[in-house]
């Protein structure tokens, strides 16, 4: 392989996500921008909203059960125990968003680490790591979720861990494929010839260049995690009462679909809104990090 110059290296690199063009491309992606605004608003509402509401999320009042939306100051109505749905929705958002973010952080960090190492060291290390990834992928996620949740007392923390356990493999595979292709590029070869350590090459050269797909996968993981939490609640293994989560709110509402439809509609729309927004952000990032989209 021919010797490469410093200029050649920068040409080969993908644009960083913080680079001007990337940012402007993202901002031009109107849907992604809307998604970002929705998420920020939702997060702020969940963090500060509960302090502004007249009712807290745990007070049971059986006289007020099944109040439809806009009854007195129950803006979104009450649930079967007469608790205020608005404040439950926002408190639930704290848990669901936190679970989503934490799953994203844990699984992205772990998946990236495994993927980078496996992609860079191609001998037995890579083989063994990737076969471990395969082994995890071979377990249907429903199996892992159900069987593992039998071992632990369900809490937001344990549910985060269990969901993260089922999410990191995708990221590891994406990163490994990316690194495998990047490590043959000229700038990596140059760095190696210049005597850089493996760690330096992996985390200073390769990871930043693989950042695009990682960020995209990460946003999609949040969306996935929020849905998985709802899904686990559907199966009865979710966050324990009286703590609300979007998933268990939606789940406990299904039997009231005909007589108290707002119980299902409110969390259903919120989940859809949040997940859609994360997906839009992911989509926007994908376009923004893809320089080809300028060609149009």
């Amino acid at each position: 392989m021919a010797m490469t110059t410093a200029t050649a290296i920068s040409v080969q690199r993908r644009p960083h996500w913080w680079q001007q063009r990337t940012l402007s491309r993202f901002l031009r992606h109107r849907l992604a921008l809307i998604g970002l605004i929705v998420i920020v608003t939702l997060t702020l509402a969940c963090v500060f909203g509960p302090y502004l509401l007249p009712h807290d999320e745990l007070t049971v009042d059986l006289r007020a059960r099944f109040s439809p939306p806009l009854t007195d100051d129950f803006y979104l109505g009450t649930d079967p125990l007469g608790r205020d749905i608005t404040s439950r929705l926002l408190m639930a958002g704290r848990i669901s968003l936190l679970v989503g973010f934490s799953v994203m952080l844990i699984s992205t960090a772990f998946g990236t680490l495994i993927g980078v190492i496996a992609g860079y060291f191609r001998g037995w290390t890579g083989v063994v790591l990737m076969r471990i990834v395969d082994a995890f992928l071979a377990f249907p996620s429903i199996f892992l979720v159900l069987v593992l949740s039998a071992f632990v007392k369900p809490s937001p923390f344990m549910i985060t861990v269990i969901i993260a356990l089922t999410c990191w493999m995708e990221i590891a595979r994406i990163v490994e494929a990316e690194i495998r292709s990047l490590r043959e590029r000229d700038f990596t070869v140059a760095a190696r010839l210049a005597g850089a350590s493996a760690r330096w090459i992996m985390f200073r050269e390769l990871v930043p260049n693989a950042m695009g797909p990682i960020i995209v996968a990460a946003t999609l993981t949040i969306a996935n995690a929020i849905l998985l939490e709802a899904y686990i609640s559907f199966l009865g293994y979710g966050i324990q009462p009286p703590l609300p989560s979007w998933g268990n709110m939606l789940n406990s509402a299904q039997q009231y679909l005909t007589n108290a439809p707002w119980l299902a509609i409110v969390p259903g729309i919120t989940i859809t809104l949040a997940v859609t927004s994360f997906n839009f952000i992911g989509d926007g990032l994908r376009d923004a990090l893809d320089s080809r989209s300028d060609l149009q």
Partner: peptide, 8 residues
């Protein structure tokens, strides 16, 4: 409250 799936 600490509920469990039936088998557990």
């Amino acid at each position: 409250i600490s509920n469990r799936p039936p088998a557990v």
